[in-house]
Design a protein around this nucleic acid. Structure first.
Length: 806
RNA sequence: GCCGGGGUGGAGGAAUGGUAGACUCGAGGGACUUAAAAUCCCUUGGAUUAAUAAUCCGUGCGGGUUCGAGUCCCGCCCCCGGCACCA
């Protein structure tokens, strides 16, 4: 018999919502548990099974916590602003505002249909003025506290999206959104000073319970390195060039200095007869695209000599000063000292331009011969040679010694640098919150007074990006003309909008405080519910969203708005569902939407099937053939429950009772560890045994249904009702197991001979080694194998195995 | 190149250093049925074999540690994800 999933699921979704069982009392909850799923940026095509996979995994955890007695708050919303949505609007030629409304409706109805236990009264959308009012407020706080600044800089520009991209949005030289090659463009932009928080963002990682994988990704992104800024005098001039190096101990092997083409001293120190070539080289670099091939290792080095030399005071050596684009303007000091023997890039450069190579480190192999090819370049540590007072030292000790030496003479200074760059906030697009700033010809940049927020995004019929570096809002003449809030003079609004990542950097603070219209978040409510207890989301956000959210949280802490520095106590990265071996994308046409499967098999079956696919942190390839297995299981449970209802006076067999308690233990532990696939396997195993043993008591039957509840919320609620349980199963206490019943009473002892399985024994608990040995030696199979052999050793593991070594 | 994560039957996947392949799909066979669907039962890593007897081989490859290795160590190969001239 099959249960009618469509009917049952709709019925309970309606009742749950009406009875508000997933709506915690935000003011008075006693055991608050904030269970948060990263909110989606909706594609207009709606939710695909990849989204549903992630949401289901989060929902199971939330339901489990609820049954464990927590007041679980599980909100949902839409990250609807941004290039993603806007590009789609452009493509189908529909205004993003209208599109958003449509998307919103569809998305929420899909989410409803999955049966997740969301707090539907606390939804938010980033394009809602009620929300972005506070995103703008946040910007103003940043500005007021010196954390937002404007700067002209070479930025990543996507010629197709016609906007600036953050470093994080450039993937191997291509635009994250559309895959177009990114070019460099000089524009004046708003930046957030995230680099000021680099050290804290790094150190705090030790305090939070995130997977090591994500922490490592963040550490690498922050990219802290310790080194020395060494000052080199330019021979015959008063200029000094400062080079940052993490390997000062190799400085006796330095043979040249290279400046970035954008280094401020380039033209100053260039000799007249070299000027023409240097200028030409720099112009050439400016025009070039940042294509993936060129940024990669295999790119051939280019460069030009300036005619000048630096003095290495350590050994009095004159080092030629070159200019090359392999030295990046924004790393370290924009100038590098070349040690070709111990740096592959330096070696390539030296080789190309015939510069001297001096070995100063010998590796463990003891080879101290000259370095003549790229594969002889040694970048590791070892014994120092050719370096006067450093000779014989290990390079690690030498680094400390030379650093002190340089500092004493004021030739150099310890320095820590980071890979992390300030966060470029400006986007020359339409579909985002207008940056709430006004430019006054007299007062300069002035924030919009907070009481005038939100600065509403005007309705623009033509919202297409212009591509000149100006935002489409530049055309909203009426809107952009304002009077300066300070002096009253005619002024102009900032016409750029802010980055989508700003919208999502603080949304978790808004959810519990959604009803407050006069503040971004209520202090008391925030204290009660935050930081987020369990945050589940995609690993692809390891360095983007998660870093920004941490940064904004730290800033709000520093400004006294909140009393915690880290927004997410636990973060768990779920895996990715792929389809036909590839990431789901519209281009590939392999996007699977859940609707048809929900219709055919039910949300419960699809939920469980997705979770059964494999470990939650690993994702998997969606192949719908297996879903039938879960459907069969659910039907079986339904059937067994109806039988139980007909005959309520059954007794649980001893065998089944033990299995039940083992199942409770296993499922409890597995959900806690998000090992949903094995939890489900265990539930199936139990149902199979139940069917075999036939007899179970009502109480035990109900216990089992509770275990099923987080996975199949609708069916378990239906069965719960049939079995006379009190509404709702999702508010019942999670079952406990009896440790005595979990304990095994019979053990299979493996008999091994030389580690190979030869026979098995079934014994009761804690049989002594002597007894097991005697039993084993009496087995015919064992006798056969031990014939004419001398037992040299016996390994005995109680309740597990005995191994005879012969 | 660097940093993560992987590699186990026909497929998805299980296995605190101790019976490799739980559970599910698929496949084969059977029961029920006029028939089909649904359901249930049996078989299902490979080889030798009449055999559900027995033995051998099997967790990407090559070594090692151990009474015992899918699991630990060393050296490789391949796949996926992220970063990428970061000094």
């Amino acid at each position: 018999m099959e249960y009618k999933h469509n009917k049952i699921e709709k019925k309970w979704q309606k009742i749950w919502r009406k009875k508000r069982i997933y709506q915690p009392d935000l003011e008075n909850a006693e055991k608050p548990f904030y269970n948060l799923m990263m909110f989606p940026y909706p594609s207009a095509k709606g939710l695909h099974v990849g989204n549903m996979y992630a949401f289901t995994g989060s929902d199971i955890y939330g339901r489990f916590k609820r049954m464990q007695g927590y007041d679980v708050f599980e909100p949902i919303g839409l990250d609807g602003f941004g290039i993603h949505s806007e590009n789609y609007a452009l493509k189908i030629n529909k205004h993003p505002l209208k599109l958003a409304k449509k998307t919103e409706k569809y998305f929420y109805s899909q989410l409803q249909a999955t049966g997740n236990g969301y707090a539907w009264e606390n939804t938010l959308e980033t394009y809602d003025p009620d929300y972005y009012k506070w995103t703008q407020w946040l910007f103003i706080q940043m500005f007021k506290n010196g954390l937002a600044y404007r700067q002209k800089s070479a930025v990543n520009w996507c010629p197709s999206c016609k906007t600036v991209l953050a470093d994080e949005q450039v993937i191997s030289g291509k635009c994250e959104r559309c895959g177009t090659e990114v070019v460099v463009k000089e524009l004046e932009q708003w930046f957030f000073r995230i680099t000021k928080y680099a050290e804290r963002l790094l150190n705090n990682l030790d305090e939070i319970n995130w997977s090591e994988k994500v922490k490592i990704a963040q550490r690498n992104w922050i990219g802290r390195s310790e080194g020395v800024n060494i000052e080199y005098e330019v021979v015959g001039q008063k200029e000094k060039i400062v080079c940052f190096t993490t390997r000062p101990e190799t400085n006796f092997g330095a043979t040249f200095v290279v400046l970035s083409p954008f280094h401020p001293l380039v033209l100053k120190i260039t000799k007249d007869n070299y000027r023409k070539q240097v200028v030409e080289y720099i112009e050439g670099v400016k025009k070039r695209k940042v294509s993936p091939e060129e940024t990669a290792d295999n790119k051939e080095k280019t460069g030009v000599f300036t005619g000048s030399y630096c003095l290495n005071k350590l050994n009095g050596k004159k080092m030629p000063i070159w200019v090359s684009d392999f030295v990046l303007d924004n790393v370290g000091t924009g100038a590098v000292v070349g040690v070709p023997a111990h740096d592959k890039r330096d070696f390539e450069f030296a080789q190309k331009f015939n510069l001297e190579v001096i070995r100063v480190i010998v590796s463990e192999d003891g080879d101290d011969s000259a370095i003549t090819s790229i594969d002889k370049v040694y970048e590791g540590h070892g014994k120092i040679i050719n370096s006067e007072f450093l000779n014989g030292l290990n390079s690690r000790e030498a680094k400390e010694k030379i650093t002190e030496f340089l500092e004493e003479r004021e030739w150099g200074k310890r320095e820590v640098i980071y890979k992390l760059r300030d966060w470029c906030i400006s986007r020359q697009r339409y579909w985002g919150p207008p940056i709430p700033m006004i430019k006054c010809p007299k007062c300069g940049w002035v924030p919009v007074p907070e009481e005038e927020l939100p600065v509403k995004l005007p309705y623009l019929k033509d919202y297409r990006p212009i591509g000149t570096g100006e935002s489409p809002l530049d055309k909203a003449e009426k809107w952009l003309k304002v009077n300066c809030p300070v002096c009253g003079a005619p002024a102009r609004r900032e016409t750029d909008v802010s980055d989508t990542f700003l919208d999502s950097s603080w949304y978790f603070l808004r959810y519990p405080s959604i009803k407050f219209k006069d503040k971004p978040f209520d202090k008391r409510i925030t204290k009660k519910w935050l930081p987020v207890n369990m945050y589940i989301g995609g690993a692809e956000h390891s360095v983007l969203h998660l870093m920004y959210a941490r940064f904004i949280t730290m800033v709000l802490f520093d400004l006294g708005y909140i009393d915690f520095e880290e927004p997410f106590t636990n973060f768990y990265a779920h895996g990715l569902i792929i389809s036909q071996g590839a990431k789901m994308s519209k281009n590939k046409g392999n996007v699977v939407i859940p609707d048809e499967y929900i219709k055919k098999y039910g949300a419960d079956a699809l939920r469980m099937y997705l979770m059964f696919l494999g470990p939650f942190d690993q994702g998997g390839d969606f192949n719908p053939t297996g879903i039938i297995g879960i459907k069969r299981f659910l039907n079986r449970v339904f059937r067994l429950s109806l039988n139980l209802k007909v005959n309520l006076h059954q007794q649980t067999t001893k065998n089944l009772e033990r299995a039940l308690h083992r199942t409770i233990k296993k499922v409890t532990e597995d959900i806690e560890n998000k090992k949903y696939n094995t939890a489900i396997a265990c539930l199936i195993e139990f149902a199979n045994l139940w069917e075999k043993e036939e007899s179970i008591s009502l109480e035990d039957g109900k216990r089992f249904i509770k275990l099923l509840a987080p996975f199949a919320p609708h069916l378990s609620e239906e069965i719960w009702e049939i079995l006379g349980g009190e509404f709702s199963i999702h508010q019942q206490p999670w079952p406990e197991y009896d440790p005595a019943l979990v304990k095994q009473t019979e053990f299979t002892i493996i008999i091994q001979i030389n580690g190979k399985l030869r026979d098995k024994l079934i014994v009761s608990q804690d049989v002594s080694e002597e007894e097991v040995k005697n039993m084993a030696l009496n087995r015919p199979k064992v006798k056969k194998w031990l014939e004419n052999k001398e037992i040299k050793k016996v390994v005995f593991v109680p309740n597990k195995l005995i191994n005879f070594v012969v």
